[in-house]
Write a protein that binds this DNA or RNA. Structure first.
Lengths: 211, 211
DNA sequence: TACATAGCATAGCTGTGCTATGTTTTGGTG
DNA sequence: CACCAAAACATAGCACAGCTATGCTATGTA
C-alpha cells in the first residue's frame, strides 16, 4: 500500500479563470450556462464540478466574488478626521460598486443569499460600523447610538435606492436623493444639521460613472 | 368567404387559474416549470402559450399580479386627517405585503422589471404621492416639497429594508428601524419633530405577521 | 520505478422551454 | 340550420440545460 499518496492536485488558476470569465459574461450579458462558461477556456465541463460542485456552487462563488470586490472598494476609503464624511464616502463607494457591476450586484442578493463565507458580507458592513463608531466617539451622534444599527440603516437606504435603480423602476438620477436621506438619518441620530450637511457633501463624490 | 369570423374564444378562467396556481407554488417553494405548472390542472402545456406566449410571459403576468395585490392592500388604507400618519400607514402596508408574499415580492423586482402594464407600478406609487401631496398642502412639509420625490424616498427606504429582510441578510426585527428612518425623512422634509414622531407612531401598526 | 488517487474528457441521462402538426371546438355568416 | 374558417387544444418531438457515469491520464509519494 501507499498510504500517504495524494496524487494530482487541482490548479487554483482554473477556479480563478472560471470565476472571472463568469463575471465578464455577466457584464456582457452573455447567458451563463455550463457549456458556454467552459467554452473559450481550455477546461472541460467537469472542471465546474471539480472546483464548484456544480453550477449552483459556481453562482455561490460568484456572489462571494461580488462581496470581495465590494470589500476591496470600501477598503480604499481612507478614514479622515470627519467620520460623518467617511460614512458618506463609504455609502458612495457602495453605490459606485453597484453601478459599475449592476448584474453582479443583483446576483449578490439573489435567491437565498447563500455564500461560501457568510462572514464576507459582515466584513463589508463592518467598514460602515467602524465609521459609525468613530462618529459616536467623536460626539457627532448621540452617546447612546448603536453603531451597528446606524450602519444597517445607512446600508438599507443605499441598497433601497441603488437596487431600485439597478433593477429598472427608478432612473439613475434618483441616486441624487441619497445625500438628503443620509443627512436626514445622521441628523436624526444626533449630528448638528449644518455640520452634517457639510460632511455629507464632502463625502459625496458623485463619481458614479458606468464602465 | 366569411370575413368576420372570430371562432372559438379563450376562457379567462384558465388564465386566472394558472396565475393563482403559480403564485401558490411560489409560496410553497415548489419549482415552477411549464409542466409542473399545468400538472394538476385540466389544461395542457399549450395553454401557457395561448394565454401568456410562453413562460416568460407567465412570469411577467405573475409580476403584474404582485402589483395588483399590492395595490389592493394600499387601497385599504383610508386617508385620515393626518397625512403623515397616512404615509406611514401606506409604507407599513407595503412592508406587510412584502412579508406576506416574500417570494412574489422578489419576483416583482426580478430581472428587467418587465411588466404587462408598466402603469401598475406607477399606480401603487401614486398612493404614496397623494399622501405626500396632502401632507404638503396641510403644511406638514415645506412648501417647496416635491411629493413625487418624497414618495420615492419613502419607497426606497421601505424597499431597502424589506428586500434585505426578504432575501436573507437582515433578520426580520430590523424592520423596527423603519419608523425611525421615516421620522428622519419626514422631519428633514420640514415636519415638526415631535408631531412627526406621534404621526409615525400612529401610522405604524406592526401587523407584520407572516402567513 | 511503480501505482493509488484525483483531475479530466467524453458520452449519454433526465428535465427544461418551445415548436410543429394534426384534431377539435366554436361562433359568425349565407 | 348547416357551413367552415379560425382559434384553442393535445400530442410528439426538438434543442439545450445541468448533471452523472465511465474510462483515461497525469501526478506525487513510497
Amino acid at each position: 500500500m501507499y498510504p500517504g499518496v495524494v496524487a494530482r492536485r487541482r490548479d487554483p488558476a482554473v477556479r480563478t479563470q472560471l470565476i472571472e470569465r463568469a463575471a465578464h459574461m455577466l457584464r456582457t450579458r452573455e447567458p451563463i450556462t455550463l457549456r458556454s462558461l467552459v467554452a473559450g477556456t481550455s477546461v472541460s465541463t467537469m472542471a465546474v464540478y471539480t472546483y464548484f460542485g456544480g453550477m449552483d456552487g459556481m453562482w455561490k462563488a460568484l456572489r462571494q466574488e461580488g462581496f470581495t470586490r465590494l470589500g476591496t472598494r470600501l477598503a480604499q476609503i481612507t478614514p479622515s478626521a470627519d467620520p460623518v464624511r467617511d460614512l458618506t464616502a463609504l455609502v458612495t463607494a457602495y453605490l459606485g460598486n453597484a453601478l459599475d457591476h449592476p448584474d453582479l450586484y443583483r446576483v449578490m442578493f439573489d435567491a437565498n443569499f447563500d455564500l461560501e463565507d457568510a462572514q464576507a458580507a459582515d466584513d463589508t458592513l463592518e467598514y460602515l460600523v467602524q465609521a459609525a463608531e468613530r462618529g459616536r466617539r467623536a460626539g457627532r451622534y448621540r452617546a447612546d447610538t448603536n453603531p451597528l444599527e446606524l450602519a444597517t440603516q445607512s446600508w438599507a437606504v443605499a441598497h433601497g435606492l441603488v437596487s431600485l435603480v439597478a433593477t429598472g423602476p427608478l432612473p439613475r438620477p434618483t441616486l441624487a436623493h441619497c445625500p438628503l436621506l443620509l443627512t436626514a438619518l445622521f441628523t436624526a441620530t444626533g449630528d448638528d444639521p449644518d455640520r452634517c450637511r457639510q460632511s455629507v457633501e464632502q463625502g459625496w463624490q458623485p463619481g458614479l460613472a458606468d464602465d
